[in-house]
Write a protein that binds this DNA or RNA. Sequence first.
DNA 1: TTGTACGCGTTATCAT
DNA 2: ATGATAACGCGTACAA
Lengths: 272, 272
Amino acid sequence: MRVTMSDVAAAAGVNKATVSRVLRGDPRISSSTSEKVWSTIKKLGYRPDAIARGLSSRSSDTVGLFFRDLAVPWAGEFMAGFERVTSRQGCECLFRSTGSDRQQIRNAMFRLISRRVDGLVWIDCLPEPDSEVPGLAVGLEYAAGISVVVDHDHAISSLMALADGRAVEIQQGEKPLFPGIVTLLPRQRAGKSGTVRVFDGVSPPCCEPLPDDAIVVCTTRKSPVPAKGIWKLYWPAFELGTLSARVLLNTIKGRGVRPDTVRLLPVLSGPA
Amino acid sequence: MRVTMSDVAAAAGVNKATVSRVLRGDPRISSSTSEKVWSTIKKLGYRPDAIARGLSSRSSDTVGLFFRDLAVPWAGEFMAGFERVTSRQGCECLFRSTGSDRQQIRNAMFRLISRRVDGLVWIDCLPEPDSEVPGLAVGLEYAAGISVVVDHDHAISSLMALADGRAVEIQQGEKPLFPGIVTLLPRQRAGKSGTVRVFDGVSPPCCEPLPDDAIVVCTTRKSPVPAKGIWKLYWPAFELGTLSARVLLNTIKGRGVRPDTVRLLPVLSGPA
DNA sequence: TTGTACGCGTTATCAT
DNA sequence: ATGATAACGCGTACAA
């Protein structure tokens, strides 16, 4: 049988409520009682039960992550960042891969809500309006609420600066890191010879750029390192995770977060 | 206020216990009562509370995933596979990135146990012995329990078959998919000219192989597609996820699973 | 077939 | 500063 709070209370000769207060660090507990309780806690190897706590406190220190598609290469890195922040706050994370079917998404959402999640993160999909808990959109802008996104404009600026008059060509695969970024490319003539070739979601065909050319691959920090001599446009997956976690936790705690969009800057970095 | 089981019972004019039985599909409930209860459930929009259920049933329909390093490119794909199976069974998944520090790992473990997880998956790290719940090792073999791994021997066989007398060279990056596979390579002379060059965790330097050569990249299904003309050795991340989930759920349900190692075969597939 | 009553482990609200 | 006790929402023997 597991050691419960009652066991501790009995062994320490105090009331359950007192134990609870000691655990929560209630200031109006005498240091003698506190020590007594703590020592019995350690002696008995007591560990609080998060489920029971959730039942009576009506919240669970748990958040849910909804991915439209979990099977993207940056998912792990994002979650790593997210988890780093939440775990320090004693908060656990559930995840779901939802796909695009609205009904399935809602089913998944209700399941998590029945788990009393304190908040939901919607990654590359739009928050359902009636989620009953604080929500945060990641990747897609969401005018009706809070969202964290990567700044595509800044990516374009960096590329144009690198091009410095040369032509810029962007090639994207099925699952690009910067979806739709091509439409942001200015429609101007190249003033210099040479081309900046950008590969997003596809491997570059060759790694030795021609003399005037520059090759840029879009990648996350932890992806397998591409060969030398090429530029990297980092899509900040990890940072997106840590930032999302901070924003969500603040929202949950009710720290003044109003509907807004937070933008993260992708970093263009030179060849090794 | 949320709709609870008592509300449904009161509205339907029956006892809480009856509602509970209807929900669990207890056969000894009259169909008339059952219909009555179901209709009130829908009318009131009642949704069962998983936390409360967990408290009284002493289990939570939740499992935990421990990654030594969550920030690997295949993490999402693995989780997608895992989640596909668990979600169909009404089971939710928590995740943690633990790193290699033993104490931190144990802390995280105790946190999840206090959440009453029904089982734990240890991805690329060894299960702690006193986890109190069923465990499953993924990636690393774990003699003392159940593990699911990718068959490195089979990978080598496939490569040797492809080489067919040519030399085989394997280059690995910091985070290879097949760690340690180089040591499995047979130490025999090449009988033919040409080389099979294998890249695991690093991008191939060039994508147009020499006439006699063959280029192989180790990858998962959903990674950005490498250029044409090269072979792929698939590391079955998604399948590893689905299989792990099945094995773990069976273990939890106590379906005869004895200490054993399940091996998944990587697939070597020709150039597009 | 259905109702009663207690237990699950904690938090919170009264008292004292 | 601490104790007693009632929620919290559900599962489940046991009774009817």
